[in-house]
Simulated assay, not measured.
Amino acid sequence: MTEHDGAAHLERVVRGWGVGPVVVATVAPAAGDPRTLVVGVDADPALDVELGSVSKALTGLLFEDAIERGEVARTTTLADALPVLGDAPCAAVTLEALATHRSGLPRLPRGSATLRRQWDLVAHGRNPYGESVAEVLAQAARTRLTRKVNALYSNLGYELLGHAVAARAGLPYAELMRTRLAEPLGLASVYVPASSADLRPTAMPGFSPRGRPREAWVGEGLGPAGGVRASVPDVARLAVKLLDQAAPGMAALDPRVRFAGPLRVGSAWMTVPVRHEGQERRITWHNGGTGGFRSFLGLDRERGTAVVAVSPRARALDRPARELLLAL
């Protein structure tokens, strides 16, 4: 099968999902080429999309890379990296606890402002984020921790992790992403817009499942947890680097603690055992969701395969994308 035939076949598979517009890329070994990338499209693959919480997986790479550089340790606390937090409840939380969702921080800051923004998202499609780093730190300082939890998925926690790592490197998070991940790996489409004015002309618009326009999720504070944008082919090129053990911070993919049920987590990256056609497999993955997008990045590290899928109609892709990965 030629690459053109492979792309045509993949597009037929993707259309069969019935989720509307979607861009999917697969990565698999091939004779004469250790990795072959095939893109199936029902939307323009050259445009950059919202990765949502797949951004956390990239922040996990940056965290592990910073450990390797000696800039932070797993025991580094938020107060060590962000002294402005003073004696806030979260000040003593370690970066390792943030990386593995064991900080006790809630998913979002509690309060009327958060509730109002969530309502504006549902009712009007508005961006519920947009805070500066200083505003995120102020939110965190007012937030109480939940005690005696094994795992509590936290967007706020990953915002703090990314900005803490960036602070120890002496860079804003967007620059950390550009200089340590995007540029070294040749991923020109990867960027972190702080506002709608920072969106590139290549920015794909997002929509609700019913096709209603949704504001772009941008914000300086949001970046590490859900504000990274990239084209699907570039995310697939990142997957190639990960499969080849050639990306910064590879330890992020290695599961360290139990998350929930059979799920185990490293630095953001989830690993789950699955049984497929009588064989035990392990999938390493992260997904994402914003007002106008759904995303999935999954790897079978033992087989050297990967799937990237993004829908600009905010329709869940996890199940068909995972099935596609298992079938590669």
Rank of each mutant, 00 (worst) to 15 (best):
L62N: 06
L47C: 14
R69F: 03
G40L: 06
E280L: 14
P128K: 08
L121E: 08
L82V: 08
A81F: 14
L187D: 06
D254P: 00
S267L: 10
V54K: 01
L238I: 04
E220Q: 12
M1Q: 09
A66F: 12
L95Y: 12
V235D: 06
L297D: 08
V310A: 09
R275Q: 14
L243C: 05
D65M: 04
E71M: 08
A251D: 15
Y173L: 12
D87N: 12
Y129E: 01
D48C: 01
V228I: 15
L181A: 11
H124C: 08
D120V: 07
R275I: 11
A246F: 10
R69S: 02
K241I: 00
T76A: 06
L47Y: 02
R212N: 08
L161S: 04
Q139Y: 05
M270L: 15
S55T: 04
A7C: 09
L171F: 01
L317Q: 06
L37K: 03
L326T: 05
G304R: 09
L317P: 12
D318K: 13
E64Y: 10
G186Y: 11
V136M: 10
A140R: 00
A167F: 11
L98K: 01
R256T: 12
F259M: 13
A230S: 15
R142E: 13
V308R: 05
T143C: 13
T94F: 10
P29S: 07
P205T: 12
